[in-house]
Structure formats: C-alpha cells, structure tokens
Write a protein that binds this DNA or RNA. Structure first.
Length: 537
DNA sequence: GCGGATCAC
DNA sequence: CATGGTGATCCGC
C-alpha cells in the first residue's frame, strides 16, 4: 500500500545511501556528509557506473517490496506459532552459550597507508590514500576527514581532497609486514596456548611465568638507525639483528631454560643504554597489550584489537577503539547483552549494505530490534538467514578458530578498456587461461568447472559456467571450454571479455558452515590486514 | 549444477 | 580519462 509513493519519496535518500559517503568506518565520525555527498554525486552522476548502480538499487527496492507484501500476508496466528518455535530454538542456543573462550581479533590500523607513511616520512601529516586514480584500497586518518575512504575511486577522492597524495600499491611490502605481524601474534610465545609443536612439559600457565618473561626493553626511536628503519629494506635487517627477547622467531618455550645466549643479550641491552622496560600482566587485556606492543616495536605500525568470548563480537570490538586501541567484552552474558543492545546490525560482519536496508524496512537497526523481530524474520527469511540473525541478536558466534580449509576456487580477473573485436576478446581470454593454468600448477590443483565472467561497458555482469566430466588444468584444456562459453555470448551480445575463472570442484557438499557468512576467520592469502588468534590465559 | 547477488577485505 | 580483484556463500531455480 505504501509502495510506490513511499519509495519515490525516499528515492533520493536511497541513492545517497548507495552512492554517497559510507561513513561506517573508524575515523569518519562527524563529517560534513551533505557537502561530501554533493561532491560525490556531482562526480558520479550521469556516468555509466551510476546508471548501473541505479538499476541495482531498483532491484533491491523490488526485493524489499516483495518482502513487505509477504509480511502483509502473515497472520497473527502464524506469527504466534513462529514465536514459539523460534523461542524454543533460542532457548537451546542460550543453553549452549559458551563464554569459556577468549577470542582476540587484531586489526592493523589503516594498514597499507600506515606502511607507506612509515616508509616515506614526507607523507607524514598529509592526507594520503593507497591505490590509483581508478580505485583506492585504503586511506589514512587525515584523508578520512575529507571523506576519502577505501573502495572509492581516486579521481573522486581528489575532488574531495585536492591535496590528497595517492600512493600506488606495493603488495610485496605489505606481505613482508604481514608476516612480521604474524610472528608477533605467534600464540605460543605470548600465552601458554598448547601448540602441537610444543612438548607438554614446557607448558606453564602465564600466571606462573616469572616477571622477566613478560618484560620488554623498549626500543627508543632516537638512534641513528631510526631513519634507516623507515625504509623497507633496512626494516628487514632490523628484524634480523634485533633483540631475541623481542624478536625471536621461535617461542621462548622452545629454548632450554637459562639459555646463555639469551642472558648475554639481556646483559648487552643493559650495558648499551639504561633502557626503559615494560612488564605486561597476565590478564587477557594485558596479553593483548603485549601483542600490540610487539607489533609496534617490530613494525613501527599500530594495531587495534577486540577481546570477546566469540569471533563475531571480537571483530566488532576491534573497531571500537580504533586506531591504536583495544576493547574487551567480559565473558558474562550480561556484558555481552549490554554491548549488543544498541549496536547497529551493520557493524556485524556479514551484514552489508543490502541486508541493512532490507532489515531497516522492517524497522530493524540495532541488535535489540533484531531480537524483537525474531519471529517475523523466521517467516520472511531462509532458515540459514534467520538462524544467523538469531545468533547475532543473542550475541553468539563461533568460539573456535577453524583451520584454513582447502581452497575451493581460483580465479584471474582483469578490467580492460572497451574491446569490440571478437578476435581480441578470444586472445585476451586465452591470456587469462594461461595465467590461471600457471596459478593452478603452482598449487598443484585441477578442477572440473570453468567459469567465464563478463562485464560490459555499462558495468552489467554475467557469468557462464561449464562443468566437465574429467579434471582440467592446462591452458589448452581450460581455453577450449572457456572459448565455447565465450562464443555463445559474443554471438548474441557482443559483450566484452572480462574474466576467466577456473573453479576447482571439491566435491564435498556436506561440510557447510552452520550459518550464513560470519564464520570466515582468516583469508588463506599472504597479505591480510586482519587476523584472529585464540588465546587462553 | 547454474546464474545472479551479497559480502569481506 | 577514470569505479578493482579474489574467494566464498546463498537462493531459487
């Protein structure tokens, strides 16, 4: 009933929500959104990209309208029954609530931008972003004050902030730093977490550790090497020559007690300069402070962290005191519920722009409202989805960290300028096939499904897949399939080649996660900004 | 299994 | 001038 009028009234708002500034990110509070959105819209309006966004927006609105119609058909009797069923399930979940684990989510602050600033002092105190004029990967906090953020094209960012410096991506560099951070997180060297590599007699609860084992000598930044430290290459050297107490690559547990070399180094430290030292306590909070201290000493970059009884909450927490801060939800039901109450659902990993909007149409903004509407949600969404929503609204999440499983697909994707000749499209397709074949070989993988993804100049995307009976892996094998998929599309549409993706069929349908999204813990890639570790103290 | 969509980083 | 690339999952066929 409120369909057409309502949607046209809020249409402008909708578009701003889609196209305009997304300030759901640390360091973007209290900006002049109106001014920023005006600039963004001015830069985007009339573009092909904008046209496609408009189309997608209409589709989402249609989805919402369908949902609202379905809602209107629900009887109070149905709702009552649903309420009983959902509450029964909620009770079971509540009964299984596990507060015994401590999950830590560590998140580097403006990672790429921070690395670039560290390595080029000229960039300090200036608004910078990492990426290109076409796309930015991240921005520093200075730039965020102008509304410049990740996933924004550089040319628009430049309009928002004319002095913005855009630094190209240096993935190799980030990989190195990422590895260093990984060492700082090595749980066995911080906690007494039992790793299968550690012999059991060497374990000792952190509470029982001598103070000396939790003491760090602070590396003061005023020596001659400081400026050298700021360059990429010397930072590696720095790592190798650093005090073993702070920068050893193997956990202390592995060293024989009273290791003479360790004692010597400590002595040396004392001899060199009267160094300051810190001692970290034994609580979870202190352990996380220690982790962040190690990261900062080792990389001269800061990290933020969240501590909570499960991964879902820990991730949200890591954002709370960003940058260079941490936040803990104590392991009690009350503390969890208190934290959850007014939390906007959009903050939860897995709830994106579209889900946010759909739930908003049902009057749901916060987690408390998500809980209130649980019965309705069970009638409007799939089981997977409403289970997921219910978990969120009860503050529940995964309490263990899954090992990185087998990869399920591998792809190569590239954006080109418009290509009109079919001949050129085939040859590009073949090139991508060649690349994917090489990547597959590197990991010794093969697959049975080949997917081709196409995008035209209007940003419309389509995928075409074909599954064959025997596995393929060579360029020739893949191209033979991709070529056929491409042929039918070219003949009909004259679309552009955009991507060739070769999927590895794992043939394991049963091992799905228990709920939609939210369970992804760690990307199997080398470069990553976020990491999760599990500790026990 | 396929294709469109959503999401994270 | 100009809006990415990779991997995963879910829904409805």
């Amino acid at each position: 009933m409120d369909s057409t009028k309502e949607t046209s009234n809020t249409y402008k708002e909708d578009l701003l929500l889609r196209m305009g500034l997304n300030d759901n990110k640390a360091g973007m509070e209290g900006l002049d959104k109106e001014k920023i959105n005006k600039i963004i819209m001015g830069a985007t309006k009339g573009s092909r990209f904008y046209g496609n966004e408009l189309k997608k927006e209409k589709q989402v609105n249609q989805r919402i309208e369908n949902m609202m119609q379905q809602k209107a058909r629900i009887t109070s009797q149905q709702l009552r029954e649903a309420q009983l069923q959902v509450d029964r399930f909620a009770m079971e979940l509540e009964h299984c609530r596990d507060l015994s684990n401590t999950i830590v989510h560590v998140d580097m602050d403006a990672f790429y931008a921070a690395v670039e600033m560290r390595d080029n002092p000229e960039l300090k105190d200036k608004p910078i972003a990492v990426g290109s004029m076409s796309m930015l990967s991240t921005s520093n906090y200075h730039a965020r004050r102008f509304g410049v953020r990740a996933a924004m094209p550089g040319f628009i960012a430049k309009r928002l902030c004319p002095h913005l410096i855009i630094v190209p991506l240096n993935f190799d560099k980030y990989r190195v730093v990422s590895k260093q951070v990984g060492i700082c997180l090595a749980p066995t060297s911080i906690c007494s977490w039992v790793s299968c590599r550690i012999r059991s007699q060497l374990q000792m609860p952190r509470q029982d550790w001598p103070e000396e084992r939790r003491r760090y000598f602070i590396k003061t930044g005023n020596s001659k090497t400081t400026s050298e430290l700021t360059t990429y290459l010397t930072s590696i050297e720095y790592e190798l020559s650093a005090s073993p107490l702070l920068f050893e690559d193997s956990p202390p547990d592995l060293q024989p007690p009273g290791n003479p070399s360790q004692v010597n180094c400590k002595e040396q430290n004392k001899l060199q300069i009267p160094q300051k030292s810190v001692v970290f306590g034994t609580s979870a909070e202190e352990v996380v402070k220690e982790i962040r201290f190690r990261i900062e000493q080792k990389t001269t970059l800061t990290a933020s962290a969240g501590i909570a009884p499960n991964t879902m909450l820990a991730k949200v927490c890591s954002d709370k005191n960003k940058p260079n801060g941490q936040y803990q939800i104590l392991p009690s039901r009350q503390a969890v519920m208190e934290f959850i109450k007014d939390l906007p659902i959009r903050k939860i990993s897995g709830i994106g722009k579209v889900t946010e909007k759909m739930l908003k149409a049902l009057g749901i903004i916060t987690c408390a409202e998500l809980y209130q509407q649980r019965a309705l949600l069970s009638l409007l969404f799939s089981e997977t989805s409403w289970h997921y929503f219910l978990h969120i609204s009860l503050g529940l999440g995964s309490t263990h960290l899954a090992r990185d499983g087998e990869r399920k697909s591998m792809s190569v994707e590239r954006t080109f300028n418009e290509i009109n000749k079919a001949e050129d499209q085939y040859s590009l397709c073949q090139e991508l096939c060649s690349e994917i074949a090489q990547d597959l070989q590197k990991e010794g993988l093969k697959g049975r499904t080949v997917t081709v993804k196409l995008k035209n100049v209007n940003f419309e995307v389509k995928t075409r897949a074909s599954t064959v009976s025997s596995v393929v892996s060579t360029e020739e094998e893949i191209f033979a399939i991709a070529k056929e998929l491409l042929r039918t599309e070219i003949d009909v549409f004259g679309y552009l080649v955009f991507l060739v993706k070769q999927t590895k069929n794992t043939n394991k349908g049963a091992s799905l996660a228990s709920y939609r999204l939210g369970t992804k813990l760690c990307q199997p890639l080398g470069v990553q900004e976020r990491r999760l570790i599990k500790i026990s103290v």
